[in-house]
């Protein structure tokens, strides 16, 4: 108390206090402004999501008829649906995931169980992480170079391989992360029972990490289901019905690309329907993946 009184009696002290008051007000003002800007940034970010989903519903929902699922793509002005594109996308996504998942699973296992701290392990982890974010168009060009050109042209299977290359690093990342969370005690218990290492990994660790690994696979499916660029160079697209893996195969994203860029109103409309289907499919998979992962925690 006396200190305050003493400070008050000295003119310099009073001035200091006044300055301190201004400073404090300035600081809290800055704080409020930054907070407001951050809230604004978040609102802007969410607005983008709402705007995209809103546009898709607004423009796509009107064109959503049963015929979209029962008829194949036709020339502009003659109706038609997206049956071949939907089936082609399903086939390529499923086969791509089926090829890529076991490889990714084994790589993740190698990184978490065998390759920890080794030079090879670190190199594989690094390269896999780079592949995870590498431009997907280059993976398409790569498969075109090594598979499409030497083996007689565009085919559904080439598309599947391109998608598998994209699946691998996604599954690697989640598998490694999830296996590292498994307590050592579980492995030790398996070893104490006389189980060989591979059995302890497959029957103990995989089972314990199942939710996490499933999440990775779901995210991978969601990612490749919407991939367009790699398919332009591999499965190319096909305007008629074809489930022959050695022939060019249609897919939703490539069909959307073709239809959305066309000057025909009915094609653009079908493009919006396709966009609606694929976006909500992908987002649903993402949400399911999150729910699966949360169950574990």
């Amino acid at each position: 108390m006396s200190a305050t009184l003493a400070a008050d009696s000295i003119p310099g002290g009073a001035r200091n206090e006044k300055i301190a008051g201004q400073l404090s007000r300035g600081r809290s003002r800055t704080n409020i402004v930054v907070k407001a800007l951050c809230i604004l940034a978040t609102i802007v970010g969410l607005t983008f999501l709402v705007a995209i989903l809103g546009t898709l519903l607004w423009l796509g929902f009107g064109g959503l008829h049963l015929s979209v699922f029962t008829t194949v793509t036709r020339p502009p002005g003659s109706g038609g649906g997206l049956l071949n594109a939907i089936v082609g996308s399903l086939i390529q996504t499923v086969v791509g995931t089926v090829i890529g998942t076991p490889i990714g699973l084994l790589v993740g296992t190698y990184l978490a169980e065998y390759g920890r701290g080794t030079v090879l392990g670190n190199a594989v982890r690094f390269v896999s992480d780079v592949l995870l974010s590498a431009p997907s168009i280059l993976i398409g060009l790569f498969i075109y170079q090594i598979f499409v050109e030497p083996f007689g042209g565009f085919s559904g299977i080439a598309g599947c391989i391109a998608l598998a290359v994209i699946v691998i690093p996604i599954v690697v990342r989640t598998t490694e992360d999830m296996l590292q969370l498994i307590p050592t005690a579980l492995r030790e218990a398996a070893v104490a029972l006389g189980a060989p290492r591979w059995k302890s990994i497959v029957f103990i660790c995989y089972r314990a990490a199942l939710n996490g690994i499933a999440t990775g696979v779901l995210l991978a499916i969601a990612r490749v289901a919407g991939e367009t660029a790699p398919l332009l160079f591999t499965s190319l697209g096909n305007s008629s019905w074809s489930i022959d893996m050695t022939q060019p195969m249609s897919s939703l994203p490539v069909t959307i690309y073709q239809f959305a860029g066309s000057p025909f109103e009915d094609w653009v409309q079908l493009g919006w329907v396709g966009a609606l289907l694929i976006t909500f499919g992908v987002l649903t998979l993402n949400i399911i993946a999150r729910v699966v992962l949360r169950k574990r925690a």
Partner: peptide, 24 residues
């Protein structure tokens, strides 16, 4: 919820961004 919504923005396929960008 907000974090999930922002992450979902990353899940939207790039072709959709293209189409939305072009028409909107």
């Amino acid at each position: 919820p907000v974090g999930t919504a922002v992450e979902l923005l990353a899940a939207v396929p790039s072709i959709i961004y293209g189409m939305w960008g072009f028409f909107v």
